[in-house]
């Protein structure tokens, strides 16, 4: 998914990173009750998502995984903050509900921003951007290699868990008293693997100089993207949508 050719994928990775970080900072800087003024912020991720052809269902599924902690932390707002914010007829809405929903909305926006960034940037491009940021090569190699061996070790662990499940009476999870030898075994296998990888790397001439990334200039398109994202969010941050509603109302005869 990260290797596609859309206007978003073609952007400079550093610009994308800056835009995402700035966007999240602006989202987080909204006051704790500003649910309504924050709503226009939803435009940016939605447009980026559409332009990058990222399927919405997948993003939502990933988002749902990240929400529980915010839910737990936010529930206190519902219970403890019981001022009345608004009455609609006989229905009164508490301030707690407002701050709770604000928190959830912030969580949604920040999570989806990170997911969109990763969904449109392949890992080798991310590490190239890190290189350009002068992050030490030790960190970059570590980042790339950890990502590389993640799948391998997950596979190994699930093969071991399957074997354990077939041998034991219970199918769900590892018994606590077997955890030591089970994880210990996995750990020893991982360390042995690391030794083999080191030897293989040495044979191929490690530590060789890091390949310098292909020079990529920041184009006017990239600048435009950055200005659009940050500019629009700053405007939304400064302007209250309800103020806009009011202006329209005034204009009406």
């Amino acid at each position: 998914m990260a290797v596609r050719d859309t206007p978003i994928h073609r952007l400079h990775p550093l610009i994308k990173l800056l835009a995402s970080l700035g966007f999240i900072l602006i989202v987080v800087s909204f006051g704790r009750y500003s649910l309504i003024p924050m709503i226009p912020m939803v435009f940016c991720p939605t447009v980026v998502m559409a332009l990058s052809e990222t399927p919405y269902g997948l993003l939502l599924k990933r988002c749902a995984l990240a929400l529980p902690f915010c839910l737990l932390a936010g529930i206190s707002n519902l219970v403890l903050d019981t001022g009345t914010a608004l009455t609609l007829g006989s229905l009164s809405i508490s301030t707690g509900l407002f701050s709770f929903l604000t928190l959830l909305f912030k969580a949604y926006l920040s999570v989806i921003t990170v997911l969109l960034l990763v969904a449109t940037t392949p890992i080798h491009v991310i590490s190239e951007a890190m290189q350009r940021l002068k992050i030490p090569s030790l960190m970059i190699t570590l980042f790339e290699m950890t990502y590389r061996y993640l799948g391998t070790l997950l596979e190994e662990a699930s093969a071991m868990a399957l074997a354990y499940g077939l041998r034991s009476r219970q199918q769900k999870g590892i018994e606590l008293r077997h955890m030591g030898s089970f994880v210990g075994q996995l750990l020893l296998r991982s360390f042995d693997r690391a030794e083999r990888i080191y030897q293989a790397m040495k044979l191929r001439g490690y530590p060789a100089a890091h390949l310098s990334p292909t020079e990529r200039k920041v184009s006017s398109r990239d600048i435009l993207y950055l200005v659009l994202v940050l500019g629009s969010s700053l405007i939304f941050r400064a302007l209250d949508i309800t103020g806009a509603v009011n202006i329209i109302e005034r204009l009406l005869p």
Partner: peptide
Amino acid sequence: VPLMAVSGAFVFAAQMINFTI
């Protein structure tokens, strides 16, 4: 470096293993 990287991947794998209390 390879030891650290594989250990990092190991942490992921270890976090995936569920144990029963």
